[in-house]
Write a protein that binds this DNA or RNA. Structure first.
Length: 868
RNA sequence: GCCGACGUGGCGGAAUUGGCAGACGCGCUGGACUCAAAAUCCAGUUCACGCAAGUGAGUGUGGGUUCGAUCCCCUCCGUCGGCACCA
């Protein structure tokens, strides 16, 4: 098969042009003030979600998004933009480390090797990346600044008054002014409680197999996302980032982004803002108050018991001696349960009575206090008032344990049991008769008046667990002295991990860095933080670093950041950012939320010029194997780009990636489809080239500098129009279809106008750059008008005058059914086409002996004759 | 369970301020070229009936609005994705 003669000599010219582009630095984008920078042009920043260089290499699915952005990048250059189109490597992280442990190859070695392979593969596809801007997150020159940003987080706090981060010094100064007598230690405690990066001892997701703690987002159905190992909950001291402070802004500032609505919705749901109230229930006989959060304060009169999360701090206080043993046993059982077990057992509610009672603030009623694991310590206040009449979970629990069920909302239509919708308050004292919304407002006002509650908002979003007990990640720029953490200075950066031969997890909660005895202790007795940052860290700001990847003095060059992120124009805070960001839906929540969070902090502190990092986001769909299954090694349906390039060339690969279907939909790969676009490219080639008797390719003798016929002009101009418009909307598949129509038209021509071919090559150049370049160059040897490279030509304009029709076909319908077609002069009026329609034989036959009830005439479109 | 997206020929997919359903490609059928094949070129290809002209049906299901619905509204079914005791 591979011995078969190629239909056009891509194995020769594809590497040739890749070499030429590289040598001439065709796609290098200079920064402002650098040689070659053209200030008159507008900027366009088009970015791929950079890959994690795994050991398996790329498959055709990865290349879909990369091809889409490359075509846009090439198109925008031809449209006269300064285009920033970079690529780099997200190289820290668990898979590389797991691989290293398995093979004994050091992660840095494996990573370097994988990057080499990925880069080679990408180069063979002919992508127009500015390789001078390549970056790697594991490079000390890069992670120095990741650590620097961490210091900014550590040394900042969120001021709720201005809803923005401020330097921690401002908080310290304020506190010193307000509380001059406060001790050094007290001040430290207050300040540490406000930092955007803080330490907390809390139940975390501990994965014994991986030897690390994981973020909630990295745990899927009670198992680790990487490897699928069991995860248990246990309390540990951890670094956490205060992303919840930004919950409202992360929510509100989504509005201005040009993102798919579905992705915005995913983020909104993830943040999970709930508006309601906190109500205070006194613990009967104790000097304690149980704070509960509810979104239905209007049902307070229906509360028949209170439930605390098993981990709630007041559990011990409210438990009576008689119940102590049972409570203790239950808490122990719950604490050792893994998340998986907890989820599995979700169907069956469990809980224990504490023996204690609480006083309902609205009616002073004494109701029992239970503990149950259906109440989560990490959400709201970790305690609820149970209203089994109007909450399904409480209803289920009350039924199981024989607790009272009381109905306090009258449903609009009768319901058998538990009713969770809105209705009218009843059995609720001063709320009786009020609709749900009003009852909520009234009871909140009442609670606030009484000092026993307040309006309150809660989020599902949790603070971001930021430390990992692993080796292959950024070390924290933090040391510990006398049980307190301290930030290292900026001049100490980067903190380079010690070279460890044995970087395996220790088997205990101690991170692997603990093994570097000489490294952990500093000369003055302080010890280093041993945790490392999670994989997300490096990808939170790489798009910024691309603007000036080699800057050694600052995390980004100020002018470069401003130029590429916000352009030269006025600073519209909501319009800036990467102009087009393309990647998979798997990052819809985590990466995109984390990056937005860091960006907002940097923005608040004045380090970046926009409030959002990515203005327009597009998710490419997944490419499935020929069997309609997700591509995976185990299924054996993975298609490697290397094989396609070998057989059909990079241009065919690029074109098929785009011809497959709409960028955003999931679609299966098919080899005969590749064959189809390959044939199309061969037809383009033969439009310009003939082979002689020895099989040598030479310029076709049919080529000539002749005028185009009207029909040819129309095809040329409608192709310019269609391709231009489709590129703007990323509808690559239909743009390619139109170029096929173009080629079909000219293949039949006896004499082929060079001018038409010239236009086609320019339009085709972003899609199939090698072929376009090669034919362009060959035509240039015999014809005028082919100076420079195809990829550097200005994008052609279409002229409507060639598209205008003198005649249009009008459809004639009878009772909505197609019965005839006639050609008429364009823009005939309603009455005129009506007459034409009525004159038609078909209409006369159909209306014979019947009465015409109505005629609908749409100029240039159709006439519909309605008869009885 | 809740939220969201999507259902169009044998296949991937086009077409929507409501106006010729099936562009383009794959596959298939026939023809030209060839000793022959491959490649290429030309023609045809939604389904049913028919030699044909044509007739009827047709965009997951059932209904509605309309002169007219792939497109708008309601119902149900299916596929995919997200969330999942979040009070």
């Amino acid at each position: 098969m591979s011995e078969r003669r190629k239909q056009f000599p891509f194995p020769e010219f594809e590497p040739k042009w890749q070499q030429v582009w590289l040598e001439r630095q065709t796609f290098h984008a200079p920064n402002p003030r650098e040689p070659g920078f053209e200030p008159a042009k507008p900027k366009f920043y088009v970015l791929d979600m950079f890959p994690y260089p795994s050991g398996d290499g790329l498959h055709v699915g990865h290349l879909e998004g990369y091809t889409a952005t490359d075509i846009i990048a090439r198109y925008k250059r031809m449209k006269g933009f300064n285009v920033l189109h970079p690529m780099g490597w997200d190289a820290f992280g668990l898979p590389a480390e797991q691989f290293a442990i398995k093979t004994g190859l050091h992660p840095s070695v494996a990573t370097a090797r994988n990057i080499g392979r990925f880069k080679n593969q990408l180069k063979k596809v002919g992508f127009s990346y500015d390789w001078a801007r390549e970056l790697t997150t594991t490079d000390p020159g890069y992670y120095k600044w990741t650590q620097w940003i961490f210091l900014k987080l550590y040394n900042s706090w969120f001021d709720p008054k201005i809803k923005a981060a401020r330097p921690i010094e401002e908080l310290i100064a304020t506190r010193q002014l307000e509380f001059p007598d406060q001790s050094e230690d007290e001040l430290r405690d207050i300040v540490d409680e406000h930092r955007l990066a803080y330490v907390t001892e809390a139940p975390v997701n501990w994965c014994p197999e991986l030897g690390t703690v994981l973020a909630n987002e990295e745990v899927v159905e009670g198992k680790s996302e990487v490897g699928g190992f069991p995860v248990v909950r246990r309390p540990m001291r951890q670094w956490v980032l205060r992303i919840t402070a930004y919950a409202d802004r992360l929510l509100d500032e989504l509005e201005f982004l040009d993102w798919p609505e579905s992705i915005k919705l995913l983020q909104r749901n993830w943040i999970g803002r709930s508006v309601g109230a906190q109500a205070m229930f006194r613990a009967d006989g104790l000097d304690e108050v149980i704070n509960v959060f509810t979104t239905r304060p209007d049902t307070l009169f229906g509360a028949t018991y209170v439930v605390l999360a098993p981990e709630h701090p007041l559990v011990n206080r409210v438990t009576t001696p008689a119940q102590r043993a049972a409570v203790q046993e239950y808490r122990e059982k719950v604490s050792t349960k893994s998340d998986l077990e907890r989820t599995d057992l979700a169907k069956e509610k469990t809980g224990v009575f504490t023996g204690g009672f609480a006083i309902n603030p609205v009616n002073q009623e004494r109701i029992p206090i239970w503990i149950a694991d259906y109440v989560l310590i990490s959400y709201g206040t970790g305690a609820i008032m149970a209203v089994p009449g109007h909450d399904e979970r409480d209803f289920e629990f009350a039924q199981k344990f024989g607790l009272e069920i009381r109905y306090v909302v009258e449903p609009p239509a009768p319901v058998e049991s538990c009713f969770v919708g809105d209705g009218t308050a009843k059995n609720s004292g001063f709320l009786d008769g009020l609709p749900t919304a009003e009852a909520k407002d009234k009871v909140i006002a009442w609670l606030e008046e009484q000092g026993s509650g307040k309006r309150s908002i809660t989020y599902k979003l949790r603070d971001w667990l930021f430390s990992r007990q692993r080796y292959w990640g950024e070390p924290f720029p933090i040391i510990w002295r006398n049980g307190r953490h301290e930030a290292l200075g900026e001049s100490d950066l980067p903190i380079v991990p010690p070279p460890l031969d044995d970087y395996r997890p220790t088997g205990t909660i101690e991170p692997p860095l603990a093994k570097a005895k000489g490294w952990i202790t500093l000369s003055d007795g302080a010890t280093r933080e041993l945790n490392t940052m999670p994989q997300w860290a490096g990808s939170c700001w790489y798009f910024l670093r691309f603007t000036s990847p080699d800057n050694a003095n600052r995390f980004v060059d100020e002018a470069a950041e401003r130029y590429w992120m916000s352009g030269d124009g006025a600073r519209q805070s909501w319009r800036g950012g990467v102009d087009l960001y393309v990647g998979g839906t798997e990052h819809a929540v985590l990466h995109l939320l984390y990056a937005r969070f860091w960006h907002k902090v940097l923005s608040d502190l004045g380090y970046v010029s926009t409030i959002e990092p990515f203005h327009r986001l597009v998710n490419q769909g997944m490419i499935l194997g020929h069997d309609n299954q997700k591509m995976s090694k185990s299924r054996g349906n993975v298609v490697s780009p290397d094989d396609i390039i070998e057989e059909y060339g990079a241009d065919a690969l690029r074109l098929y990636e785009m011809f497959l279907g709409p960028l955003e939909s999931t679609k299966p790969w098919s080899m005969s489809g590749v064959e189809g676009v390959y044939r199309f490219l061969a037809r383009v080639w033969r439009l310009a080239m003939d082979d002689d008797q020895e099989g040598q390719w030479q310029l076709s003798s049919s080529l000539s500098n002749v005028e185009l016929s009207a029909k040819q002009q129309k095809v040329v101009h409608s192709t310019i129009k269609k391709v231009s418009e489709d590129l703007e909307s990323l509808s690559y598949n239909t743009a390619i279809a139109q170029m096929m129509i173009f080629v079909n038209e000219f293949t039949g021509a006896q004499i082929r106008p060079v001018e038409a071919l010239r236009t086609l090559l320019i339009l085709l150049s972003p899609f199939a750059p090698h072929l376009a370049e090669e034919i362009w160059w060959r035509l240039g040897t015999s014809f005028a008008g082919f100076q420079g490279m195809a990829c550097e030509q200005p994008w052609p304009e279409w002229s409507d005058k060639y598209l205008a029709e003198e005649e249009v076909q009008i459809v004639i319908q009878i009772n909505g059914k197609l019965r005839d077609k006639v050609n008429v002069r364009k823009d005939l009026g309603k009455d005129e086409i009506e007459q034409v329609a009525l004159a038609s034989m078909k209409v006369r036959e159909a209306t014979r002996g019947k009465s015409v009830r109505k005629i609908i005439a749409v100029p240039n479109k159709l006439v519909n004759v309605v008869v009885d």
